[in-house]
Structures are given as structure tokens and as C-alpha cells.
Design a protein around this nucleic acid. Sequence first.
DNA 1: GGTCCGTGCTAAATCGGCTTAGCACCACGA
DNA 2: TCGTGGTGCTAAGCCGATTTAGCACGGACC
Lengths: 364, 364
Amino acid sequence: MSRRRVTLADVARTAGVSSTTASLVLSGRGSELRISTAVQDRVRTASSELGYRPNIVSIGLRKGTTRTLGLVSDTVATGQMAGDMIKGAIEAARDLGFMLFIGETEGDPAIESALIDAMQDRQVDGIILTSMFTRTRAVPEALERVPTVLLNTLPAGPTRAPAVVPDEVAAGRAAARLLIDAGHREIHLVGAGPGPHDVPPDTVAGVERLAGILEVLEAEGLTPASGHLCDDWAPPQGWAATHELLRQHARPRAIVCFNDRLAFGTYQALQEAGLRIPQDVSVVSFDNYPMADWLRPGVSSFAIPHEELGRRAVELLIARITARAAGTGDAEVPAGDADRAEPVTGDVHRLPLPLRARGSVAPA
Amino acid sequence: MSRRRVTLADVARTAGVSSTTASLVLSGRGSELRISTAVQDRVRTASSELGYRPNIVSIGLRKGTTRTLGLVSDTVATGQMAGDMIKGAIEAARDLGFMLFIGETEGDPAIESALIDAMQDRQVDGIILTSMFTRTRAVPEALERVPTVLLNTLPAGPTRAPAVVPDEVAAGRAAARLLIDAGHREIHLVGAGPGPHDVPPDTVAGVERLAGILEVLEAEGLTPASGHLCDDWAPPQGWAATHELLRQHARPRAIVCFNDRLAFGTYQALQEAGLRIPQDVSVVSFDNYPMADWLRPGVSSFAIPHEELGRRAVELLIARITARAAGTGDAEVPAGDADRAEPVTGDVHRLPLPLRARGSVAPA
DNA sequence: GGTCCGTGCTAAATCGGCTTAGCACCACGA
DNA sequence: TCGTGGTGCTAAGCCGATTTAGCACGGACC
């Protein structure tokens, strides 16, 4: 058993033809170029008998394409989100015959730039720039020359890269609508509000969820019964905010928590106060962390479609790559000065957050 | 601004030398091969002025090495584990100048084999085979010819690949020891036990944690006060098992939960029964999920060192790769028949699970 | 004057596939 | 007999680096 890989030359030799012929046959251009069926069969037989697989590195050198994508993330370890988003990306890539490099920058621009270089050195066909919490950022110069897609990230300036993000405004609207449709008119907010600017810094999710909620309330002629800005959206803050809420309003009837971890704290505080969910208080939340299912009763939560986000980003990216390869892509800067920077702002794809209804909401 | 990458030939032309010379200088063999310092300076200046970066694809073709590793996982989305383990792997790879392909098989052998092929096609220098929960499995034939490391996985048969796994037996011992040292003699188990074979199928963690616990109890002349095998280690099962436990023993004093999700259920059941932690009952657990910190009081939990596991696997793999490249590696099958399958079982590296002490354990 | 040697650099092959240009052969018509 | 054109296949260059083999030059020595 040979240690060496089987090369095209081996196949050609076995089939008794030149490697040119073997290449043509195996790339499906045999008939087009009038290679006889007898020879085509010989080549294909030899190829499968030897277990030939083309060396993608070689193709990469010749054609400049490697069927490989790079995913640059700020951090990989933030909760479930990361895993699911990356899972979606990996699956989509695999389905389309691509492999995925994953890199993380820890938020350090120097690492980011080194990472992008390292990926370019390996001739990736495109790059996904992602963040583990939705945010706005500038797209590095180096990426304007490569097919790029932003994932869970909005561009700070003009760029040709499209973005894929969760539709948080719609989710905010839906959350408010859910409680209002259940007959609630007095709605408390835990995590942000009551004013439209009362949000933790740099959280797109905070701004947009709040905007959606306020929009619906306003349409009903309402304002939040109370709002409690939390600097961090974790259980202790949820507990403290709810505790404070209960001090001001002894009997709240409906609470929107800005994420499930806050809701966890809210549950603890409500339980300690002897209030039952949902009989006394309805609670709705966002993110749909696994935890949402573990609480009793489970929290009705709007699920960030992580996997779908990752998948969409890869599909978009590969579509751009193939379009570019076909010459119809946006890479074809209209004849003339190739330097005429013409950064059309890329599309923004917003994916819905479906409601995972559990038992935490009851009619007023 | 040119669209094309800067190549070695560009550097050579700018410096007025041959590309051979440029290559020698930049690879640090200039002095060794008596290139004058003047020329060396010219080359280096040209290189940095042009922003030259070697094309790794080309190097891959020529040398067969790509400074790239592949990580093949059964699934990426299982909880926090995946993220942290992959994070550790990615960081270690980056620190050592490697990039990482990530692929997931969903447990399908066909996908697994396709994935390994796809990585080999891209000339990866080595492969990490990993599972998101510790388990035992056979190593695919195809991997015996590539530097391979098993991560969170034990080999079912003989193989030359080393394995990196958490030291669950030691953690089991430590958990039992923790309670005994606090004065407890009556210890209940939630998740597995009381007999050494009462574990969910295919869980290495279950078998080993239990073995460690029983070993220490036995040394003290004890057996578990009770044991409750759960088919799935999730909160509802933890709740049910604890409920059952309370039916049999009204006032348990110490419980070992086999993971934090079970502990979550145990907390709920104990609270419902009006028992306080740790005043009435001490609880200790494993995994150190983020949740362990959110419960009140936090659960003292033995942390699986995910990040460290991932990091170690990469470091081991790269060490093997460089050893092999240097000719001192195990790849050098002793002269003679290269086929003499000589599968020395690789080393098993067991990493400790440090205790994250919180407030859930009190003296008896 | 010719040979030998050390110095300092380069030509050319190589890795494995794709791709352009073109060759050898045969049949047919003038 | 000689083109002419179609058929079926191949030689050779290329991608961008590494690496082997060796060239040109000048000085020392016999």
C-alpha cells in the first residue's frame, strides 16, 4: 500500500492517456472536447479504482480558488449562541462543498488583522465577519477586496458586504403584542427602558427590542408601567431589577425581560415574593436559551435563530463567490478606474425570531 | 493599487536578485549560504516595503505542509462544552501559527469519512477527532496515516493516536472526599449508582465519576446512602430523582449530583420540600456550567477544563507534526516493511477537573 | 599559464493540477 | 497529388514557492 496520494498523473498512466485527457474527462469536459467514450470510460475506471481525489491545494494554486471560507469571530465562547451560529455555518458550508476556517480575535484588532491575513495567505474564497452579540462595527479595509458577509453585525460605514442579523425590532413588537393581546395594559420592562435611550451601551439588541416594544405600546396609547435598565443582562441584575420593581409596584401583572438570563433572576425574585407565574404575573423574554426550558414554568421566549443566521451567511457568501467567478458578480468593477471606490451599502438581511411559547404568559 | 498579491518574484525583481536568492534570504538561510549582507538587506527591505506575504497554498503544494489542522467533531452545538473546547483549540493553533478547519459529522460515519477526505484534500497537517461528550470509539483507518489526536475521546482499539480527556475518576474521588471531609457519612447519588454499573449507557463520565466516588466511600467503609440512575442528565430527571430520594429519606444531608443540570432539578425539588442548601443539605456537582453560578447558593462543581483540553490536543498534535517533519517522529516506521502495522496504543493524557467551590457544601 | 578553490549568486526542476495551443491522422474533394 | 477540415488526443506553460545543481569570477598555487 503506497503512502503517497494518488495523483492525476497516476490515473492517466493507468488509463494509458495523457494527464491532459484525464483532466478533461474528470472535469466533465470530455464529450465537449470529443474524447471518445472508450477513453472516457478507461479514465473514469482508473480514477475510481485508484481512489483518485484531486489535490485541492494544487487547484488552489492554479485557479486561485480553494473551496474554503474563513469565519472571523470576536469570541467563540459566549454561551450557546456561538456554537449554534457556527454550527449553522459549518453545515451550510459542508452542504455546498466548502470547508470553514474558524478564528477568533478576542476583540483585538491586531489579532483580527493577523487572522484575516492568515486566511488570505491560505487563499480563502471569502470571509464571514461575525460577532457573538449583535453589534455595529466598521469593516476592515482589507476585506473590501474579498467577498465578505457580516454575520450578527451591522456595518458602521458604507460597505459592499451584506449583513445577516436577527430582526430584533420585530421581536420587540411581537413581545409587546403578545402581552397586549392577552389583555395586559400595564407592562414592566426588566433590562432596559422606560425611555428609548435607556439601554446598555453598544447593544443593538437592546436598542431594537426596546424600539419595537415602545412602538407597539405607543400605538395602543401606552407607555411602560416601569423600566429598569441593567448594565449586564445576567441573573443577579434581573433579580435586583425585579426586586426594585416589586418595591414600587406590589402587584405587577406583566413583565418583559430583555433576555432569558434576566428572566431567571426575575423568576427568583417573584418566587421569593410569593408571586406565581403565570397566574399572578406573566413573563415574556428573548433569546430562548436552553435555560428557558428548565425554569418552571418555562419562559415564553423569542428565539434568536442562530443556526439559521450562520447558514444564511454562508449561503450568501457562496452565492457571491460563484457570481464573481462567473463574471457576473459585483467584483466586476465597471470598466475604467478600478479604484473608483464605489461602496454600495450591502443588503441587510433580517431574520425573524420565532416565539417559543411555554407557560409563562396568561390572560390578564 | 494593484489587485494582485505580491509574490516572491516581485520582491526579487525589486531587490534586483533572483527569486532563489530572495527565497533563501527570507527563509533565514541567507548567511548559511553566503549571501552578502548588502543583498540580504535589499531583499528584506523590498519584502517589507511591498508587504510581501508568502502564499501558503504554494508552499503547501511544494512542501506538502499547510500549517493547517482539521478538527472533526460529532456535533458542535451541545451546550457550552463545544464552544470552550473549540475556543481552546483555536487559540492554541493561532498561537502556534496554525489555522483550524472545523467540521461536524452529526454522528454519521459517512459524513465523517467525507469530512476527513475533504480535509486531506486540503493537505491538513494533522487531525483532531473529538466528541462533545466523553466517549469511547474506534479510530477510522484513514487516520492512521495522518498525525491524529483524540480529544474528549478514548480509543476503542489499539491506535498510535494519543488521547486527551478529563480525569473523571479523580474528580469522582474528589467529590466524595469533599463531602466526607465535611463530616458527611451518608451520601446520596443523583444521576447514577448505587451499584458501579448503574450508569446511563455510553457515558464515560458516568462510569468514571461513579468509580471514583465508590472507591473513596469504600476506603471509608461506606456505600452510597442511595443511588438514582437517570437516563438523561437534565433538570427534569434531577428533579424526579430527588423527589424520589426525598420520599425514601425525609432528611438527606449530602447529595452528589452527576452534573449541574441534574443539580438544577435537585435544587428545585429541595426548595419545594422546604430544605435549605447548604444548612440542611450539602450538594456537590460536576461540569461547572455557567448555571452553577446562577443558582442560589451557587453549586460547588468540578469544572471540566474544556478550554485546556482543546489547547492540549492542539499542542500535542503540533508537537507530533513537527517531530515527524524533523524525521524523529513516530511517522518513521523503522526501516523495512512500512506496512508492518505496529499500532502502539497512544498515550492518554488526563487533565484534572478543578473544584469551583461555591456555597452549596456545609459541615455535617 | 593552467588548475583549483572559495565566494556569491542563479537556472531550472519540482509539487499537481488546469488550460492554451497545436499535432497526427484520416477522409474527402479538387 | 495536394490541400482542407474534422476528429481525437497531447505537449508544454502556468500558478508561487522551495531546492538542487551548478555557473561565473577572482585569487592562490604550482
